[in-house]
């Protein structure tokens, strides 16, 4: 370090001398490089002022005393600045450490909450879930029952970031403990509601849509706990309708009962489930209308379900200048036989 300083000191003095004689731009460019080298080697401002004082006294041994005093005064004034700079450097390092730590947590979350898209006869499934920040406050989960039925959960914590992500782990492990294939959507929500009510901070709410598809009946049974309504696409009529569902968000009151609905699904019909990160996408300052989501889905409806959701996501990602404001989850089921 001292070697760097001595080398720079010599260069600094030469450059200064040259500049005083010629006032040329080249010396200024060279000192810019020296300055960057100082920064790289964590030189503080007072050390640089001191370097300047030394260079001056070597170049002008008979420098006026008044002037020398003034330079020492400047050096004193730089001390606090140098300290603040060091603190800033350290905080930057700490911030980097934190980011790394959160990245580890996020990848752990991915492993913990991971779900695989199951193969269900006669169904084409596509899903995309992308967090706005590093950790995801949206959650979706597939459960394949023994009778070839499919359970689908999609949930959203009001709030985002780390607290939201932590709550989701709880939901996942509660659901894992249920013998799901034997439980109806309404029973699952009723149970989860109790878990959330008991264990989560009262200011935090979770919305969830739980559906169970029974291939032998072509029926979708579902219940909603205050979740963003999904859409049903009727292929025969070529219409989209909002999926009717009422229910209180999870965690508000301990004894909530949920209604269960059913929906007949015919060939080429689609069920579209999403979180409010999709419907509350923004185009500049304007919130988009849900029709716009449907329009975009229609535009890609000829594609297989997974490509469809990927394209829809890309569309809205671009619309929002590649910076999601909320976690984005979109899930599409299409009956293909």
């Amino acid at each position: 370090m001292d070697e760097v300083m001595n080398l720079s000191a010599a260069t600094y003095k030469d450059l200064l001398e040259h500049y005083i004689k010629t006032q040329d731009e080249k010396s200024l460019y060279e000192v810019e490089k020296v300055s960057k080298n100082f920064i790289k080697n964590s030189k503080t401002p007072e050390e640089i002022v001191n370097l300047h004082i030394q260079a001056l006294s070597e170049l002008y041994p008979n420098l006026k005393e008044d002037f020398q005093h003034s330079m020492n005064f400047l050096l004193e004034a730089m001390i606090a600045y140098g300290l603040a700079h060091q603190e800033y450097q350290q905080l930057r390092e700490k911030q980097y450490e934190l980011k790394t730590e959160i990245a580890v947590a996020a990848s752990m979350q991915e492993t913990l909450l991971g779900t695989t898209k199951p193969d269900i006869e006669g169904l084409d499934i596509g899903v995309v879930s992308v967090p706005a920040h590093q950790m995801n406050g949206d959650y979706h989960h597939f459960v394949k029952g023994k009778d070839n039925s499919l359970g689908i959960a999609i949930a959203d914590v009001i709030g985002k970031g780390i607290p939201a992500a932590l709550s989701m782990s709880m939901i996942k492990y509660s659901m894992d403990s249920y013998p799901e294939e034997s439980m109806s959507p309404r029973a699952i929500l009723k149970n989860l509601n109790r878990v959330v009510e008991r264990n989560v901070d009262p200011s935090m709410f979770i919305t969830m849509f739980y559906a169970q598809y029974i291939p032998s009946e072509s029926l979708l049974h579902y219940s909603s706990a205050g979740h963003e309504p999904g859409f049903y696409y009727n292929a025969e009529k070529n219409t989209f309708t909002e999926i009717e569902s009422k229910g209180l968000v999870l965690g508000v009151s301990p004894d909530t009962d949920y209604q269960q609905y059913k929906l007949k699904i015919n060939k080429d019909d689609m069920v579209i489930l999403l979180t409010d990160g999709v419907t509350e996408c923004r185009d500049g300052e304007r919130f988009i209308e849900s029709e716009e989501v449907l329009d975009v889905i229609k535009q890609y409806a000829h594609l297989p379900a997974q490509e469809m959701v990927d394209q829809v996501y890309k569309h809205f990602e671009r619309l929002q200048d590649f910076q999601l404001r909320d976690d984005f989850t979109l899930l599409i089921l299409r009956k293909i036989v």
Binding site: A80, L83, A84, H85, Q86, E87, Y88, Q90, L91, K94
Partner: peptide
């Protein structure tokens, strides 16, 4: 800790003394 109390992001305080 850096940035705490008296320092208020000005780099002073006890962490500053430690650095000096």
């Amino acid at each position: 800790q850096d940035g705490f109390s008296t320092s208020g992001g000005l780099g002073a305080g006890l962490p500053g003394v430690k650095r000096l």
